[in-house]
């Protein structure tokens, strides 16, 4: 047991180092490649000899950098939220997209578009975050009201039912108000328009969510052993449950307001992370954060370079990667793989 633990810790150190190096590589590539190619020298200048009248410098500092950071934040948030959700709802297939959280956010955006057309950034962010929060609470309500007896499959089905309901309402509002073209844009997910202001709003929440999740990581691991065991070990399960719900809510909302509805990241990254470092949340959560960030930034890099100068919505690309993975996971799912 302890040998395996030590082994996992070594693996963790190795994988996290690799992950961080790759993020650095992704950073470098993102700065250089995009609608236009910018040489490494100019990127260096943009950071250390910034000239605000040089548009190349502005591109690096005010277009590419915030967008890259947005991708990192979204990837890390969704992965960590997914991992926590999977642990606390005893559902290895939980993910903010699959569980319908994104559809709540989309409904929020549509409500803003339809009923407050002139609304500013804050209102839009607020209402879509509220939509995401509402669904998160609903899911936890279902999971806890079922007293842990609800199988993962049933959780996925309830997520699907919730997203069907919310997207029906979304469609009704769209058809009633003729917002068709706009909506296709908003529902595809892209970080292309991120500016520093968005990050300024998101970062405090993001930091709070990540830090708290690391703090409660040990308790999450213990709780996964079963509630009786954790109560025996003196853990305050109610507090941990409440905290983890709030973390999932905040992190999902952060991702949604930056990038729009994007699914499957919270499914894929935790799955891979567990494969790398085992099931100890103290190791899993940081790994998720790093690899989630890496994943989104790489997909975005690809999205920008498919046809330079135009933007492909990364939400759709991620779905295309995510669906086969979901099928794979559900095939692997024997009911005893993770949580007995």
């Amino acid at each position: 047991m302890s040998k395996e633990k030590a082994n996992n810790q070594t693996r963790f150190l190795v994988f996290i180092t690799i992950g961080l190096v790759l993020v650095a590589v992704a950073f470098f590539l993102t700065m250089c490649f995009g609608a236009t190619r910018i040489s490494a020298g100019e990127v260096f200048d943009a950071f250390f000899r910034f000239d605000s009248s040089n548009f190349t410098h502005v591109t690096v500092r005010d277009i590419r950098l915030p967008r890259f950071l947005a991708d990192l934040i979204v990837g890390a948030s969704l992965s960590v939220a997914g991992a926590i959700m999977q642990g606390t709802t005893k559902n290895p297939m939980a993910d903010s997209g699959i569980m319908g959280i994104s559809s709540g956010a989309t409904l929020g955006v549509v409500i803003v578009l339809a009923f407050f057309p002139g609304a500013g950034r804050f209102l839009k962010m607020g209402i879509s975050a509220a939509g995401a929060g509402f669904v998160t609470l609903l899911i936890y309500l279902i999971a806890y009201a079922g007293k842990g007896r609800i199988t993962p499959e049933r959780m996925v089905l309830s997520g699907m039912a919730i997203s069907t309901l919310l997207s029906s309402i979304t469609t009704a509002i769209i058809l009633k108000n003729g917002l068709m073209t706009q909506m296709v844009r908003y529902t595809s997910g892209s970080s292309a328009n991120t500016i520093w202001k968005d990050l300024a709003i998101a970062v405090p929440f993001f930091a709070a969510g990540i830090v708290t999740s690391i703090v409660i990581a040990r308790s999450l691991t213990v709780m996964n052993l079963g509630e009786d065991v954790s109560k025996g070990l003196g853990a305050n399960t109610t507090l941990i449950k409440t905290l983890s719900t709030i973390i999932v809510l905040i992190l999902s909302a952060v991702a949604v307001i930056i990038i729009g509805p994007v699914g499957y990241i919270g499914l894929m990254i935790p799955y891979i992370s567990r494969y790398m470092v085992g099931t100890d949340y103290r190791l899993v959560l940081p790994t998720c954060a790093v690899y989630g960030a890496l994943f989104v930034s790489i997909v975005d890099l690809a999205a920008k370079n498919v046809k330079p100068g135009m933007e492909y919505p990364i939400g759709l690309l991620i779905t295309m990667i995510g669906v086969p993975f979901f099928v794979y996971v559900s095939r692997r799912q024997e009911g005893d793989q993770f949580y007995g």
Binding site: G34, A35, R185, N193, K304, G309, M310, E311
Partner: peptide, 12 residues
């Protein structure tokens, strides 16, 4: 695509 997004870098 109609209303295809034009990259901020290329807008000029």
């Amino acid at each position: 695509v109609a209303y295809e997004a034009i990259s901020s870098e290329k807008l000029k």
